[in-house]
Design a protein around this nucleic acid. Structure first.
Length: 263
DNA sequence: ATTGAGACCTGTCGGC
DNA sequence: TGCCGACAGGTCTCAA
């Protein structure tokens, strides 16, 4: 898409989680994609008109790219971008929790979806001092705090769970326990920040390696995709631990953790 | 202000 | 084979 023009845009189903903006297709057609970017879980396409196309995959969304301009379209293919490069980019989303919006460039930072996002977890701005400040005096669980997008933009359920496991911190702790009463970072806050950065950068590295090597099976790069997530009842992989992974529900979402080594 | 529950949708999977 | 409930990687709104 980058550098290409929208030759035709088909909104086959405008009722995603929110309704598409008015004249969605017309505002894109004829425009060029200047650059692609991301903020948290939102994908951003900077368009020659000055608008930004804002996209979110929700739970079940995905993009499919075919190199033919007349790529075929099937069930749950809600948006079809036919690009001047000859590629067809299709947004598919069975559950329709995804989002597409068009925002005037200068309004982007004030868009409700982006305005309250916290720091990017892989940026140097995300550090133990900031995390400790954000968690100070919060009565919610550490796990619930981590998936709050105001704490770290883009951290979701799986990687929050994985990071807590790496940091050997119980998801059930109060969020405030990683800071001192004055809001300064404890050692646990440093461990947690390092674990979040490690978990995310590892996942990105594996994903990139996998995409660049079409000959290899997915399992070469994702032997077992996660260390705790979705491993209820299995033995903890921390050497010498011997605990069994538990599943609990926090704020309506599944948490997996080892009650022995995560404290 | 903070927090958790419920709602929004459809598909898949395991158990009976 | 078919039916049914539980569950799914997210976010928004609402009420306590």
């Amino acid at each position: 898409m980058s550098g290409a023009r929208f030759d035709a845009v088909e909104a086959r189903r405008p009722d995603l989680r929110r309704l598409l903006p008015v004249r969605f297709a017309a505002r894109l057609e004829g425009q060029t994609v200047r650059a692609l970017g991301r903020r948290g879980k939102y994908l951003l396409a900077d368009i020659s008109s000055g608008d930004t196309l804002l996209m979110h995959l929700g739970m079940s969304g995905s993009f499919r790219v075919s190199i033919t301009p007349d790529g075929d379209v099937g069930a749950h293919d809600h948006i079809v971008f036919r690009m001047s490069s000859g590629a067809t980019v299709v947004f598919n989303d069975p559950r329709r929790f995804g989002v597409m919006d068009l925002v005037a460039g200068e309004m982007l930072d004030r868009h409700p979806a982006l305005a309250s996002l916290g720091p990017e977890p892989l940026s140097p701005l995300f550090d133990a001092a900031g995390l400790a400040r954000a968690c100070a005096r919060r009565k919610t669980s550490l796990k619930a705090a981590l998936v709050d997008q105001r704490i770290a933009a883009g951290l979701g359920n799986i990687y929050a769970v994985e990071a807590l496991y790496r940091a050997r911190l119980s998801p059930r702790r109060r969020a405030a326990t990683i800071s001192t009463p004055a809001g300064r970072p404890r050692d646990t806050a440093h461990r947690l920040v390092a674990a979040i950065k490690k978990v995310l950068s590892d996942a990105i590295r594996r994903s990139v390696a996998w995409q660049q090597d079409e000959s290899e099976a997915r399992d070469t790069y994702f032997p077992s995709r996660f260390r705790v997530y979705d491993r209820e009842g299995a033995r903890c992989r921390t050497t010498g631990c011997g605990g069994r992974i538990k599943r609990i529900v926090q704020a309506g979402r599944s948490t997996f953790y080892c009650p022995v080594c995560q404290r």
